[in-house]
Design a protein around this nucleic acid. Structure first.
Lengths: 139, 139
DNA sequence: CGGAAACCCGACAAAATCGGTCGGGATTCA
DNA sequence: TGAATCCCGACCGATTTTGTCGGGTTTCCG
């Protein structure tokens, strides 16, 4: 029950970009310094771009930068972009749940409850919070 | 970012056992009625037994039953038994995090924050809550 | 006592996912 | 024009997931 390296590397990258926000585009190479295989990271940044979290400038002197200020990007934005929507069981969320006992399934409400709460948690953390180290311990 | 079928099936099984708590041992076959491949479920129940969540009675008329009342078993107990401890990144939790930047890593505190909160959430739900459909929506 | 009804356990395996690598293309700056 | 970049898709080995299977053990019941 853990998330993959995509989420981890993606968050690293976004934190790096937040720390250098406003300093112009950051090259892949620079971002990878944080400790991510460069060619892999490239793919991940592709996902972040398609999720509209980063903008890119192509060509020499190009690179990546946040497409919104750090206060407007949440942990959920990032993690969902990297790992797909967080849903504990396939019987909740998108798509017609293949679960026959749709209503009246005690497990189902557990999944719903948990996904809800967890998403709320993720929504409550912004990139700005992260780089300023102020995670509200009492939420 | 979802959990595996182990967690799902495991929870189904435990809910079933909770619903029949006090009625004597329930056979594998009966539990599998909930919709789980029988031979797979057998393995999963093994994990639950080793985690001390269910007791078994061997031999004819044997079966599985909760080893504690439903109020004393939490979602976390079950999910951890099935999927191992919940930790978002390998750099938090047991073992010497292979993450060099141990302290002073903004990502790390995010993982810690989230794992903490989520574990708390899981702890707050008991089997009894599940079968009585009273998940506290305002926690 | 002798089945039959259960649980127990380890080996095996197909399929999916993960964690990348690689090569070639397209853009842009100097 | 050439170097610095990003872009994209194909590929690949390792691991994990999701089971199946076969045989063993324990216990009840007639």
């Amino acid at each position: 029950m853990k998330l993959s390296t995509r989420g981890k590397y993606g968050l690293y990258a976004m934190i790096f970009l937040a720390q250098h926000h406003g300093e112009g585009p950051q090259s892949l190479k620079a971002i990878a310094e944080v400790g991510t295989p460069e060619s892999y990271l490239e793919q991940l940044l592709g996902s972040l771009r398609r999720a509209d979290l980063v903008k890119t400038v192509r060509g020499a002197q190009g690179g990546y930068q946040l497409s919104r200020p750090p206060e407007d990007i949440t942990a959920r934005d990032i993690l969902e972009a990297m790992e797909g929507p967080f849903s504990l069981s396939d019987c909740v969320g998108e798509g017609d749940s293949p679960c026959a006992r749709k209503e009246n399934c005690p497990a189902r409400s557990v999944w719903e409850f948990l996904t809800d709460k967890f998403n709320g948690l993720l929504d409550s953390i912004t990139l700005a919070d992260m780089i300023h180290q102020n995670l509200n311990q009492t939420t």
